[in-house]
Nucleic acid binder design. Structure first.
Lengths: 110, 110
DNA sequence: TGACTATATGCGCAATGACGCATGTAGTTG
DNA sequence: CAACTACATGCGTCATTGCGCATATAGTCA
């Protein structure tokens, strides 16, 4: 081994960045959160998130393309479910970090 | 408690999304990776990442605004260091998830 | 003060992505 | 087949953001 940590390959970096980008949209986070207790149909998700049908569908497509959710068709309806539970670990880590930051800021201001 | 998980507030959702957005840029990930072993000056980071000075500076600004890195000025130079090590946990989680996905795809095709 | 170095920033361009609207497609039921 | 439902998608628009270029600022040294 020459360099212990050689320059990260552009591809690897792009993959990781892309994964974070998928999670950088409030509506997609909302959808994932709605799916935390199991699969739901698109219509159910539309109602629980308050988004338009078109927008919800597109975001679900994005999540599915990234492999974060799974699609299951049953008759007229399509059910989506979380394919990669590690997403929630990610969100918890971020939330914890944000809480720490807010707590610090709060202590600064009083 | 009425609803165990009430609709996530827009503000909270935006904060989390914003945090993910910060991490969704390859150059910023590269910068953070360069900082894994301790603080570095902007010039050092320019060299180790291969970016332009202006671009590196701006990305560092973005990371600093988000509270992910700390700024320390010493004479002419400015040293940046990781302020929130949980970032690396995030990246490892994502990498692990991506590896799993790739392994699955590989097994499908071969 | 003036020259030099290290870093930051204003500006313009190009690419990306989210959204709404309308429409397309698949499946069900009569 | 026609009508209906659930979902997907093409298109146009708008806002955001990354980048390069040039320039500004801050600190050092002669």
């Amino acid at each position: 081994m020459r360099k212990k940590t050689r320059a990260l390959s552009d591809e690897a970096l792009s993959l990781v960045a892309r994964r974070f980008a998928i999670l950088s949209e409030p509506m997609r986070l909302r959808l994932l959160h709605s799916l935390v207790n199991g699969e739901k149909s698109v219509n159910t998700l539309v109602e629980s998130t308050g988004g338009t049908q078109a927008n919800v569908s597109r975001h679900l497509q994005t999540l599915a393309d990234a492999g974060l959710v799974k699609r299951r068709k049953e008759g007229l309806q399509v059910f989506y479910s979380v394919a990669d539970p590690s997403i929630f670990d990610l969100c918890e880590l971020v939330c914890g970090s944000l809480e720490k930051q807010l707590a610090q800021r709060a202590s600064i201001f009083g």
